[in-house]
Design a protein around this nucleic acid. Structure first.
Length: 462
RNA sequence: GGCGGCGUAGCCAAGUGGCUAAGGCGGAGGUCUGCAAAACCUCUACUCAGCGGUUCGAAUCCGCUCGCCGCCUCCA
């Protein structure tokens, strides 16, 4: 049984999908006006892991993640750059896809763009207007908050507090200052679509309601995103969707914590971001992922290059096991998982079942790793060791780690030649020469270690 | 001001009523080695921000205090 923290109820609840054996989930993607940063990476990795785990548990998962490709900032920056908004957005959509692939994040089943669903949004707005939930004013359309009493439930605020809040913008044309835009009339120089209210473009919130319902139906299982989207974005999504269909929108709401730079949230508006494309040149995707998953997804995570380096170091112990297993795999017949290693999968699942507790799940993996290393050093049954490593890798892959095969490239002939020469020198007990050759091999990028079974070559930086 | 969250070892971080307070990094000692590296073993929080309270029993529940963060505006 999977339990999940539901932002809507603020409790951990048993996860029961609407259709047995099937999960439909929607996650809010990025607004594509700049490169994606570490904060976006966290959200992506968190929901990637949730998706992978649900799949691992046997659910048929449909995963939708959108692109917001029309927005004030896209338009402004595209104008500055002298290209169309569409062209500008496409550039960053391509970059985002590359970034996600480089992080080992699985592509969504569907990744709809807002601009390709304007018709659905117009239809949704029309229905809201017809039903008295929305009203047009001079080419704009606003959602009438007073027509939807549950507004504020997700974020835990009541309508009076919102009014009292100092930062509600005053717009005389709105009936109520808390009303929000569903449709924005086009200003000169802006891209637009024709609508019953004149040329314009959709508001931000409406796109997610429209696309989620188009691909997942009026009611679906899990809606995710960063916790900074709870209000107003997700609140508005609910209002639009439920006012329109009269059906409950998402059953469970999951929100990931922010990545902080120092004490402050990393965000594009604060200008303190670290882009993914730069980070993946400095750190392996697995190190970044291990670092992120070492903190529960709902907690704040402070950026620290040192922590990532530590994670890379921790990872090496497990990576070593993979290499060692690969080295002996060729030898014997495959074995089934020995009983000594049977405890780890249930422990792993127990951790993950409890609101996707990746820090605890990783603890299990490291315990497993210790057990395997011990078995390896004891000698004995290599096939059992290999079977154990296979199990470990399977579990790690549920977290998106070890996506690439261990099969290392063999050492180049030059390195092999040097290794043989070193062996001869050492046999003569000419350790000085041996050490020189070891340094030479190191310069070629390979680490030499002497084990009871002979020298072992490992490519550096793995 | 309103709403939500956090404060656990040198650092990071699980644990949210009762076995020895996970795991990672770092540190100390040991085994192995020509040396090294790696690996393995042992040790590294009598204590969970502070103070009260509830309870047979609390890091875990309640209250207060202190410190920090997020949202209330675009934001993953």
């Amino acid at each position: 049984m999977i339990r999940i923290s539901n932002t809507m109820t603020r409790t951990k609840e048993e996860f029961v999908p609407l259709t047995p054996g099937e999960v439909r989930m929607y996650v809010c993607g990025v607004t594509v006006y700049d490169y994606s940063h570490i904060g976006h990476a966290r959200s992506a990795i968190v929901f990637d892991v949730i998706r992978r785990y649900l799949t691992f548990k046997g659910y048929r998962v449909t995963f939708v993640k959108n692109y917001t490709d029309v927005d004030d900032r896209i338009i402004r920056r595209a104008n500055e750059a002298g290209v169309s908004a569409r062209e500008y957005a496409e550039r960053f959509i391509a970059a985002e896809r590359e970034d996600m692939a480089s992080l080992g994040v699985l592509a969504p089943d569907i990744d709809p763009k807002a601009t390709e669903h304007v018709a659905e949004m117009i239809e949704l707005v029309e229905r809201l207007v017809d039903d008295g939930h929305a009203y047009p004013v001079e080419g704009d359309v606003y959602f009438a908050i007073s027509s939807f009493p549950p507004y504020g439930r997700l974020s835990g605020r009541n309508l009076d507090e919102l009014l009292a809040g100092a930062r509600v913008e005053v717009d005389e044309r709105k009936r109520d200052p808390r009303d929000f835009a569903l449709w924005k009339g086009a200003k000169p120089g802006e891209p637009y679509w024709d609508s019953p209210w004149g040329p314009g473009r959709p508001g931000w919130h409406i796109e997610c309601s429209a696309m989620a319902m188009k691909y997942l139906g009026p009611s679906f299982d899990l809606h995710g995103g960063g916790e900074d989207l709870i209000f107003p974005h997700h609140e508005c999504e609910i209002a639009q969707a439920e006012a329109c269909t009269g059906k409950p929108f998402a059953r469970y709401w999951a929100h990931n914590g922010m990545v902080n730079m120092g004490k402050e949230k990393m965000s594009k508006s604060l200008g303190n971001t670290l882009n993914i494309n730069e980070m993946v040149t400095r750190h392996s995707p697995d190190a970044l992922r291990l670092w992120m998953l070492g903190t529960h997804y709902r907690n704040m995570l402070e950026w620290s290059e040192e922590r990532v380096v530590e994670s890379a170091r921790a990872l090496e112990r497990l990576t070593r096991l993979r290499h060692d297993a690969a080295a002996v795999r060729a030898g014997g017949a495959p074995a089934s998982l020995p009983p000594a290693f049977a405890e780890f999968r249930p422990r792993f699942e127990k951790a993950m079942d409890d609101d996707f507790n990746t820090p605890q799940a990783l603890g299990v993996l490291f315990d497993f790793g210790r057990g395997l290393a011990e078995a390896r050093d004891r000698g004995g049954a290599p096939a059992a060791f290999v079977a154990g490593v296979d199990e470990l890798v399977q579990l790690a892959r549920v977290l998106g780690l070890f996506g690439r095969d261990a099969a290392p490239d063999g050492p180049p002939p030059e390195v092999q030649r040097l290794l043989a020469a070193r062996g001869e020198a050492r046999a003569r007990r000419d350790f000085k020469r041996g050490d020189e050759i070891r340094d030479e091999i190191a310069r070629l990028g390979w680490l030499v270690e002497d084990t009871p079974a002979g020298p072992r070559l490992t490519p550096k930086g793995r």
